[in-house]
Design a protein around this nucleic acid. Structure first.
Lengths: 242, 242
DNA sequence: TGAAGTATGTGCGGTGTCGTACAGAGAATT
DNA sequence: AATTCTCTGTACGACACCGCACATACTTCA
């Protein structure tokens, strides 16, 4: 009974046509998810994808300090383990049961088999998408926990990785819009970085003089995003500059 | 010359095999991206996917108040317009050029053609992934701009949408971990909601008494996520309760 | 019944960011 | 050369949230 009607309680599974259902359902396993259970840890290779029915799972990022921030919530509308079909096999977040209940799960390999017939373009784009998702998640974490000074460092580094030289053409006003803070806050932070000899700026032009120092002043968020991008997009390793 | 070597400056395109290149490159268009140019607005149907070479594009969410927060940055490692192959055709964010430069673009329909041979499972999962991405992006925005009170409302609503009744089994300590704030902050906020008659709680059990009021006290983030989920996952419309 | 553990309430000083206002200095325009 | 505009620097009170300490009340279990 579970194997026919049960999985349909998950809206995602219910939306699939019968032929897909017939391929997948025989391999689905019914599981109880107790409160607090960790489905996967940051960095773990995913062993299953989970389709919740009446349970809720949180995706959260745990910082080096131990502080954490929820990135998103998943219930019967979705699944846990997008990294699997994205092609990354793991994420930088932890999945933890927020509300006890039931779910169905599918072995990782089964899921991957469904995708492996598809083309290279698909897989390439999906891997990139996962890198993008990591960046978004880390932005959320950073907004919650880090100072403007740290966020400015992160932001400068992310931009630098995408440019040729060491100069950014960007006013403090615009940076403030990006970070979602006051322009004056950026002025303060940038002033401090300049006094430390890390950057030098003048009316919309920012030169990075000491990239190593900039990295050390940044929060962990830059390194997390960078490392994950290098992992997921090995063909695009942005060589560090200076 | 541009049509053969140029696009390869984008790492994503460079990573694709020759047969895909041969299909795509003839349709690629070289474009200049001046600083501040808006590639698409929130809600716009995407007309192109952009592959930056030496330009940088920011994805940012603009709030009703006009305040904004950058969700992520895209350069030559990626592309602008993941919503297109995700199946959503539009996003809740704006894409704006952060650093002037060049890019190659491809008509939306060309991109979709590449994917339309693939199965329903794929499309379903990708649409869900886009909904998840929206939630992450909104979490980032919310962390930047809204009070604990507002965030608690958003969080309660997101959880409620995934449960049957009106009761949440959840301590304030755990909610604090999810939101990335102090437990005392949640106690204060929850106390205020209780005094307003919106919720009632007792040692790990939270009853929502007035959902409409809860929605009005929440920031726009809940509605944005909810609306976008309904749009992307029409099969999963979580009927509002109470 | 008593003790230990868990969940919530409250107070207080510290600090990071905000909102606002205004000043100065370089660039662009006339 | 004078004016206007843009970008950056500085100051100050307000406030939200933090870290910490401790009190209270309910629950569990010996």
């Amino acid at each position: 009974m579970h194997h026919l009607k049960g999985p349909q309680q998950n809206h995602l599974l219910a939306a699939l046509p019968v032929d897909v259902n017939e391929r997948l359902y025989p391999h689905m396993e019914f599981v109880e998810l107790p409160l607090g259970k960790v489905l996967y840890e940051s960095g773990d290779t995913l062993r299953y994808v989970y389709f919740p029915t009446n349970s809720i799972v949180s995706l959260l990022y745990v910082m080096e300090s131990g502080a954490s921030a929820e990135i998103s919530v998943v219930g019967k509308e979705g699944l846990i383990g997008v990294a699997l079909f994205m092609g990354g096999d793991s994420t930088t977040s932890r999945a933890i049961v927020q509300s006890a209940g039931q779910a169905y799960r599918l072995l990782a390999q089964r899921m991957k088999d469904e995708f492996n017939r598809h083309g290279v373009l698909l897989h390439t784009l999906l891997r990139y998408t996962q890198a993008l998702i990591t960046q978004m998640a880390q932005t959320a974490v950073c907004n919650r926990h880090h100072s403007i000074d740290q966020q400015l460092c992160r932001w400068l580094l992310l931009s630098l990785d995408r440019l040729e030289g060491n100069e950014l053409v960007m006013t403090q006003e615009l940076i403030a819009n990006m970070l979602g803070v006051r322009r004056e806050g950026v002025t303060d932070a940038a002033g401090r970085l300049q006094r430390l000899g890390v950057i030098e700026y003048h009316r919309g032009h920012i030169q990075v003089l000491n990239r190593a120092k900039l990295e050390s002043l940044s929060c962990e968020c830059y390194a997390v995003v960078r490392k994950e991008s290098d992992r997921l997009l090995p063909w695009a390793k942005n060589t560090a500059k200076v």
